[in-house]
Design a protein around this nucleic acid. Sequence first.
DNA 1: CGACACATTGAAAGCTTTCAACAGATGTGG
DNA 2: CCACATCTGTTGAAAGCTTTCAATGTGTCG
Lengths: 244, 244
Amino acid sequence: MTLVEHSPLTRKLSAFVALSEVELAVLERLHERRRSFVAGRDMVHQGQSSQAAYILSAGWVCSYKLQADGTRQIVDFQVPGDFLGLRSVLLRTSDHSFEPIVDIEAAEVMTSDLLDAFAQTPRLATAILWAASRDEAMVVEHLVGIGRRDADARMAHFLLELASRLALVGMGSKDGYDCPLTQYHLADALGLSAVHVNRVLRQLRESGRVTFRDGHVTIHDHDRLVDLAEFDPAYLDQIGPLLK
Amino acid sequence: MTLVEHSPLTRKLSAFVALSEVELAVLERLHERRRSFVAGRDMVHQGQSSQAAYILSAGWVCSYKLQADGTRQIVDFQVPGDFLGLRSVLLRTSDHSFEPIVDIEAAEVMTSDLLDAFAQTPRLATAILWAASRDEAMVVEHLVGIGRRDADARMAHFLLELASRLALVGMGSKDGYDCPLTQYHLADALGLSAVHVNRVLRQLRESGRVTFRDGHVTIHDHDRLVDLAEFDPAYLDQIGPLLK
DNA sequence: CGACACATTGAAAGCTTTCAACAGATGTGG
DNA sequence: CCACATCTGTTGAAAGCTTTCAATGTGTCG
């Protein structure tokens, strides 16, 4: 079995921990229950409790919270290799919704399977918990972005974060990546109006930094984009040895 | 031993789970290493890793992230009964700083002590993880607030959340509570300028909803405050049975 | 008393939203 | 195959919320 055949999750974790044959096998076995979901129909609804988590293997998902006034705030996007609802399985019922942005493929993981896997391979458990804590760090960074960055920097930061996340699972490079999000998704995620998202994107494009168009992000000038966003990828990378 | 002698954490957890004598004893034993920290001096610095977590027993702390341009975003406040750095112990090094807002008292909990306690009393482990997931839900709600609520609603929501959190540990009621935060703290937490915080507070006061003054929050009209904030405390409460 | 932290206000400037209108692509039903 | 509705993207202009700049007041503390 060559590396490219591995799941995105395996690929992601392998970038940070050298997993043994046994650990890889356990990890791949978690992918047994294949499921598909169609774009636009919520997988999990706000307040609904679920007994399973999912490992996203293809497609994009967003997790969001709806407000009484009808506006929504997207909390995070999930791309291949990401867990979906990991927390609600380990801890308690989810309090936000998950919506597939395109048709997706995911592996359903029952709580018990996950706990068994953790018991069998503690290093794998650590690796998965690391991934979960990385997701959390992203939410915090997202909070900082909405609270303290202006629209341009916020967008720039967001696009760079995505580039970094996708590169980790081999779905793009520093030069660009495919991205199925609409400007409405960006607006709901960044706390902006769709109209302003459009203007910000235009400005980023015309300043020669990055182009978001036709489902593809093209990074023209990585340095100046990083500069504008004050992007520091530390929160995405592992600091110090992950496993002793 | 009467209830009032218990630590705030015990009090908080007891509101959701009936803990046995043994569990209560284990929980109280976690409070053995008493530590004090003075206001204003960071307990943990961004990027610094720590081997211990703390259970806050008296005083207020904030966790924040500093940006390159000098602005800061406060991610969360900790009040008595809250954990501090629980995640960085369980998972990986913290990526934000903790600053005591007033002189505080906290119990230092070593990783190993915590894991021992978890092993001895699984129900206690679940209860503590529940508290951690509640903290996370607050961060998400915070994100929603900054992204999708205007300044008035954001402030109203924040003050109501604090009321609810403090009531849980017996430090206030629906009518008000003591609060050592300055308007600068509010600004850094809510993503507003200090000047605007002042104006918002004035408006809330003059509309007869709530007064924030001299270290004390007085809620004059709870209903209209809830109404303005669209405050739904569901994310703070347990949905369904916590322990089977 | 002077230094300093915190709170308060007014006015001007700036960023973002809202309102409106329009263009292009896609998909469905007649 | 066309008409029509829908979704997404685009743009201008006006309105609105929030910030910035400046100045002032109040209280604590050494």
